[in-house]
């Protein structure tokens, strides 16, 4: 194990996969000569050259479509959105092409591509309304995509490698707030599966269920709860489509209580889906209503106090967890 930042872990995954498989090519804005604004592709242009690390103009819709075209021709494109907000420009290619070509062709074609980029309010503050959105649900809603979001550096590397090797189109959502944060990363060639959630911290009184950047909030809340004599278990739902409910169901069978935590807007979001599944599949195990802590349903505001208020708060997770125990 080695301490790496999230972007360094992702960079390692890309480098290893590019060495392993020459069909892997990268496309995106400022990813090559400029080395990537969030550093994920740093050094790769120098190492692999412009045929494999392709700098694109600001043409998100079309370079995503180019990714689809490369993929159906047997390449393994990894398309970067400088920020996931800009994928809104590419939604037609994502929804109507990337996600559907396999099905529409009766399984005769596949689209082994990865669309990746940072989402949510970070790494730095002040990203504001059009650059710091958490749009996870838009992808997770669409059949034909795999949608994953790692919560730590170790998973980030293993999951990105698995995503590149997958024969399916994968939307790989990098938690923006964690981009520069460090953690342990394996130095070997390991994969983390794209269809398995994981318990990140064991506990017995209440389950804190999150994905992506919200897992770090859950872990902090679990530490705070421990001081107050409450044992919280943290479940990382890192695979959102297909959604792996296994660890969450097992956890709730043990704790009988759950709080679902996300940066996203609450209404209709991934958290809503998780709660609905818990109601359907864990109803008889629950001793309290499942509650939620989410981002406020407003565009990301600029002012420091408003920005902070708009994000899910650890104190609220703690309070909600305790409320389920009353």
């Amino acid at each position: 194990m080695k301490k790496l930042s999230m972007h360094e872990a992702l960079n390692q995954a890309l480098r290893e996969e590019m060495h392993r498989d020459e069909r892997v090519v990268l496309l995106g804005e400022e990813i090559g000569k400029y080395n990537g604004v969030h550093y994920v592709t740093r050094g790769l242009y120098a190492e692999f050259g412009k045929e494999r690390v392709i700098d694109t103009p600001i043409s998100e819709e079309s370079f995503t479509g180019v990714g689809v075209g490369l993929a159906i021709m047997g390449m393994r494109p990894v398309v970067e959105m400088m920020r996931m907000d800009f994928s809104l420009r590419a939604m037609d290619q994502i929804y109507n092409h990337m996600a559907k070509i396999r099905y529409m062709s009766g399984g005769r074609l596949s689209v082994p591509m990865v669309l990746r980029g940072p989402e949510g309010p970070g790494p730095n503050p002040g990203l504001t309304a059009q650059h710091g959105q958490q749009l996870t649900v838009l992808f997770a809603h669409c059949p034909g995509l795999r949608v994953v979001s790692p919560s730590n550096q170790y998973d980030a590397k293993g999951m990105l490698k698995a995503a590149i090797r997958s024969d399916d189109p994968v939307v790989f959502l990098e938690p923006g707030p964690l981009n520069n944060k460090q953690g342990d990363v394996g130095e070997d060639d390991y994969l983390v599966p794209l269809d398995r959630g994981e318990v990140k911290h064991e506990g017995s009184d209440v389950s804190l269920i999150g994905y992506g950047a919200s897992v770090a909030l859950c872990l902090q809340a679990a530490r705070d709860l421990e001081h107050d004599g409450v044992s919280a278990e943290v479940v990382d739902m890192r695979c959102l489509r297909p959604l792996d409910m296994g660890p969450a169901l097992a956890s709730v069978a043990k704790t009988n209580r759950a709080v679902v935590v996300e940066y996203a807007w609450q209404s209709y979001g991934p958290g809503a889906e998780i709660v609905a599944r818990l109601m359907a599949e864990a109803f008889w195990n629950l001793d309290a209503p499942v509650t939620r802590v989410s981002g406020q349903e407003v565009p990301l505001p600029y002012a420091a106090n408003l920005e902070e208020l708009s994000k899910p708060q650890v104190a609220d997770i703690v309070a909600q967890a305790k409320a389920t125990l009353r």
Binding site: T128, Q130, H131, Y302
Partner: peptide, 27 residues
């Protein structure tokens, strides 16, 4: 000008007929 909600890229002034900065290229 935007009550502190917009920031550098999102200045607006309908009175001065300024309909906004925009953070999305081409937006």
């Amino acid at each position: 000008v935007s009550k502190g909600k917009g920031g550098s890229m999102h200045m607006y002034s309908p009175e001065r007929h300024f309909l906004g900065g925009d953070g999305i290229v081409g937006g």
